[in-house]
Design a protein around this nucleic acid. Structure first.
Lengths: 201, 201
DNA sequence: TTAATTTTGTGCGATATAGTACATAAATAT
DNA sequence: ATATTTATGTACTATATCGCACAAAATTAA
């Protein structure tokens, strides 16, 4: 019986010369720096290490490629967030840890590119409904993850877990924006740390 | 003696057939919908009602045109914000009013395009330093405006006016992002209203 | 009226860009 | 071995995009 996770089957034709995850990661780097529209397929295929026809055959057109890179990035981010929030320590400590990890990612040298969802997907949303849908879904996942953490915490019930999650999410998005516009990591960390007790009051 | 505000002098050659403010406003609409890179000069000049060479002569290249539209938008936004924050009512009421005005702007039909600074300028920042500089300046103006309002209020001094301003600004940016990704005005208003007492505690 | 000055608009050119056709290469199935 | 299948890479096409040259138009200065 064939399951969808059965990956040890030998494919029929010539084997691929690339690893999907690595290509999506490299492609994501170009999209993150330039945005969707300004990233040319020449740059993308060069960064990916394979040429345009192979890109098209494997991922479809530019929009589909972008969405796959976005989902790849977003899913891993949500996973990381979940792991940190499910870890040890007080909710304040875990939230702070999540912010620090996000800031590290958003300000990773050499450039401070922020978050792909907030930083480039949002711009394309009005003209690319599929990108908007993916971005909406990912932000919802992030806030669900935060909400679960608040719901499982011993905080007062009054600002509801959902309200706290919206607030914590808003701070995260603002951090991403500020990173991309040029704010340094140290300043971002100070801001995030100052917000943790406000959210967890 | 000639002052820089002396505008009643008769210019020398053929008079312009357009109003600068109106052109910048129309151009801004195109940039807001498509973003910087995806907005073509053909679309821009058509929306502006004048042809490309006139656009170039009057505003310079695409980047300069974008920056002028951004500044035009940003300066007016800061002005409006200042006016609302300097108005009557408690600081809570004025902050809420400022958020409601921003949400009206961000969700103005037919599309929900959010804020030009947060929504499109941030994306271009890594590749266009001049746009990054303008965006940084404008966000600083917004936060200065908020800070002045908090400093003049009777709130407890403990979260400093600057800290409150960073927080209020972060909420504003998150609203802009969520608007552009598709969140409805009613939901945004509920979120903003829930945040006002937290900021003004 | 003539010269000087600035704006306008048609049209051009160089470049780049998205997407694809087609022949070649590398693997498995029989 | 031969056929089948999938991936690769060169080369191509159609389009569109940015920026500008240049002549005509509209105004003021003299």
């Amino acid at each position: 019986m064939r399951t969808s996770t059965e990956s040890t089957k030998k494919p029929r034709g010539r084997p691929r010369s690339f690893d999907t995850a690595e290509v999506l990661e490299r492609v994501r780097g170009v999209f993150m720096e330039k945005g969707f529209a300004a990233a040319s397929l020449d740059e993308l295929s060069e960064a990916a290490g394979l040429n345009r026809p192979s890109l098209y055959a494997a991922f479809g057109d530019k929009e589909q490629l972008y969405i796959q890179a976005l989902r790849f990035y977003g899913d891993r981010s949500v996973e990381t967030l979940d792991k940190i929030l499910a870890g040890a320590g007080s909710i304040e400590q875990r939230l702070a840890k999540a912010y620090m990890a996000a800031i590290d990612l958003y300000t990773a040298p050499p450039a401070r590119l922020g978050c792909m969802i907030v930083g480039t997907a949002a711009v394309e949303s009005p003209t690319h409904p599929k990108i908007a849908a993916a971005a909406t879904e990912l932000l919802a996942s992030i806030e669900k993850s935060l909400e679960r953490a608040f719901a499982a915490s011993e905080l007062p019930p009054e600002p509801t877990p959902a309200a706290r999650a919206r607030m914590a999410g808003a701070i995260l998005y603002a951090i991403a924006i500020r990173a991309r516009i040029g704010m340094k990591a140290a300043e971002l960390r100070a801001f995030a740390n100052s917000m943790v007790p406000v959210i967890c009051r």
